[in-house]
């Protein structure tokens, strides 16, 4: 039977998360930054599913009918729901922004303070 340490998934998730952070920090295009945020959300999702699986495996060895780990997967589901809503509003804001300043460069966003 194949055994994959949960650490691998942690490292994968952290790497994706860090890439997302670097993206947010280096890019100036609002849409790309937005996509990087989606990337970070997905990194978290992987971690949740991995932990769900890990606990389920541990519990299954003792009890064959266990449903431990269901909550984590539902949590991922809700994250997706919220992300979808967030994308809708976020993209609408970006469209609005583009309409007003004809750019999606976040450095121009500091005009909001005036």
């Amino acid at each position: 039977m194949p055994i994959i340490p949960v650490n691998y998934y942690i490292f994968l998730s952290l790497a994706l998360f860090a890439i997302g952070i670097v993206g947010v920090l280096t890019r100036r295009n609002a849409i790309i930054i937005f996509m990087c945020i989606e990337l970070m959300l997905n990194a978290v999702n992987i971690l949740l599913v991995a932990f769900s699986k890990m606990h389920h495996v541990a519990a299954y060895a003792l009890d064959k009918t266990t449903t431990v780990g269901t909550e984590a997967q539902l949590f991922v589901f809700f994250i997706m729901v919220v992300a979808a809503a967030e994308v809708t509003v976020g993209l609408a804001i970006i469209v609005m922004l583009y309409r007003n300043i004809h750019s999606v460069d976040i450095n121009f966003l500091n005009r909001l303070k005036h």
Partner: peptide, 29 residues
């Protein structure tokens, strides 16, 4: 800073003994 974050998070989470395997018959959740 992104690299440091990765490093520090790995350092924080690496001590973990959990594992995942795929057994026959499990996984209905």
């Amino acid at each position: 800073s992104g690299g440091s974050l990765l490093l520090i998070l790995v350092a924080a989470l690496k001590d973990n003994g959990g594992y995942i395997n795929s057994m026959k018959g499990e996984g209905s959740i």
